[in-house]
Design a protein around this nucleic acid. Structure first.
Length: 487
RNA sequence: GUUCCCUUCGUCUAGAGGCCUAGGACAUCGCCCUUUCACGGCGAAGACACGGGUUCGACUCCCGUAGGGAACGCCA
């Protein structure tokens, strides 16, 4: 109807790292905004004072940045200062705003002060459970006037909460979900729920509505676990006479055992994958395909293509299992497509961490990557691959012992040393020539020929193609290594 | 317990009543390339949860059943 600008937000609560489920939600929000020329907003839902930390917020911001999901409004990624016209963007800084709307609710008779203690509520729950009723709170303070409650508050030792008063008459609420179609909730599905805690902080279902309305969100994409919360939120929207955004509830991401993905499934945070040598473009690619499919049936897809093609009508309502094998393949494919100079840059932190020093000649780097990248799936794979080329002391691996014990091995290696010494420089062709010579002069072939040579070069019986590796190495280094194998 | 959601190869998915002998991708297996391993190429195997309708015709629509999941907090 209206030509209003699309505004989509990602609203994590800073209670830990950004996990892959959150990352996917953020990605979809981002893509939706980009696709429609809208704004992507980051809002921090830190109303849970106990669990929210500044550190976790920084971690999540960092992860979002790593993924390249840049927001138009929200805390500045460096300074954390608010950017945008609808701040503050941290809920902990919006207390007065929530209080104002809670007061409005109170005034309208849509909410009331409730003095029920934890024990009383617990008792009610027990009772409800016994009677097999939904465990909903029935507050005796429900019909008190605000004045009466305020008067009582003075004498009451524990501060009250503010509860939303769910209408008595039962009606059906229909949510037109972007992912699931029409979803009908009976209003008696929920009891009177808390909107403001006794410590004055608002509760998710309340501040989420106030913020989404005030921040002019047009679309809300979030996890399926929020689906049933939406009923409460709709009630708040209606009571406050706010315009509702369109909702889309995304499926869950599961582990291989089809349980909700959690820490016991291994790596689940975006940062874990960063550290394991996955590329952000691969992460986005894989995550996008978990619950969404490209209309062009692309499996390998760039961020730009994603922005172009993303549409909510291809979002899958069924939950999806996170398959790290496929992620690895996606990663390997992206990695091999990277320009070598860029790949080299991405590798630097991993080399540094592993203490590997390599030539800074770009031509050498390019040649080396050409050779190595077909055996790399993740950035960390480069560590083992490049070790033989670093200026670390040469070591013969245990796996190579068998090769060295072969009868013909020492003759082969001696011949190798002899022939290499006769050359100035070794090209791939020279290497092939030498190999052929050894083959005839030592009368060996196949494994007996190839593996000793490989061990003499990299100290391992298996690895990258040696004919490409050799040109990357200095002649004297080759000789030294071969000699070491003979001792 | 109540309410809501979900259900196509092992996994991610395509599929909007006849284009389906159910397509693709990952993984698996085989062959080719390769004097190793990868990369690459080719190929094989592998699924509509079940039962009823509706229809000339159902993977597609409806209703049940089963299984899975979520929510029912002063967590988000």
């Amino acid at each position: 109807m209206s030509e209003q600008q699309v505004r989509v937000r990602f609203a994590p609560s800073p209670t830990g790292y950004l996990h892959v489920g959150g990352a996917r939600t953020a990605l979809y929000c981002y893509l939706y905004a980009k696709r429609h020329g809208g704004k992507f907003i980051l809002r921090i839902e830190d109303t849970d004072l106990e669990r929210s930390t500044e550190e976790a917020m920084r971690m999540q911001i960092q992860d979002l940045n790593w993924l390249g999901l840049h927001w138009d409004e929200g805390p500045h990624p460096e300074t954390l200062k608010d950017m945008g016209d609808y701040g503050p963007y941290r809920q902990s800084q919006r207390k007065e705003i929530y209080q104002k709307y809670a007061d409005q609710l109170l005034e309208q008779g849509d909410a009331y002060y409730c003095f029920l203690s934890d024990e009383e509520i617990e008792a009610q729950r027990e009772q409800a459970k016994k009677e097999k009723r939904p465990p909903q709170v029935k507050s005796p303070y429900r019909d008190w006037t605000v004045e009466k409650a305020l008067e009582f508050k003075k004498t009451c030792p524990t501060p009250p909460v503010i509860r939303f008063k769910v209408k008595d008459e039962k009606t059906d609420y229909v949510l037109q979900d972007l992912v699931r179609g029409d979803v009908t909730f009976p209003s008696d599905m929920v009891g009177d729920f808390v909107v403001i805690r006794s410590n004055g902080m608002p509760v998710y279902n309340f501040c989420c509505v106030v913020d989404d309305a005030l921040m002019k969100m047009t679309h809300v994409f979030r996890g399926e676990d929020h689906l049933s919360n939406t009923l409460r939120q709709i009630m708040v929207y209606d009571a406050l006479n706010f315009e509702k955004p369109k909702f889309g509830h995304l499926s869950m991401i599961l582990g291989e055992d089809r349980q909700k993905l959690s820490k016991r499934h291994g790596a689940t945070s975006v940062n874990d994958f960063n550290e394991k040598g996955f590329l952000p473009e691969a992460m986005n690619n894989f995550l996008a395909l978990l619950g969404w499919s490209s209309p062009k049936a692309q499996e390998i897809i760039t961020m730009d293509e994603l922005c172009e093609q993303f549409h909510h009508d291809r979002l899958n309502p069924a939950s999806a299992v996170f398959d790290e094998k496929k992620l690895t393949w996606v990663n390997a494919t992206h990695l091999r497509q990277l320009p070598h100079a860029e790949l080299w840059n991405r590798l630097q932190p991993f080399f540094a961490k592993a203490g590997i020093n390599l030539s800074d000649d770009p031509a050498w780097q390019n040649k080396a990557l050409e050779t190595m990248k077909t055996s790399m799936e993740t950035l960390t794979d480069a560590i083992e691959l490049f070790k033989p080329l670093s200026n670390e002391p040469f070591k013969v691996s245990d796996k190579a012992a068998e090769v060295l014990s072969w009868e013909t091995t020492s003759a082969v290696i001696n011949k190798w040393i002899e022939l290499v010494s006769a050359k100035n420089e070794l090209s791939a062709d020279d290497f092939q020539e030498i190999l052929a010579q050894i083959k005839t002069e030592c009368a060996v072939k196949g494994k007996q020929l190839f593996m000793p040579i490989r061990v003499a070069i990299i100290g391992e019986p298996q690895g990258a193609e040696v004919k490409l590796l050799v040109p990357l190495m200095a002649k004297q280094e080759l000789i030294d290594r071969a000699n070491q194998c003979l001792n």
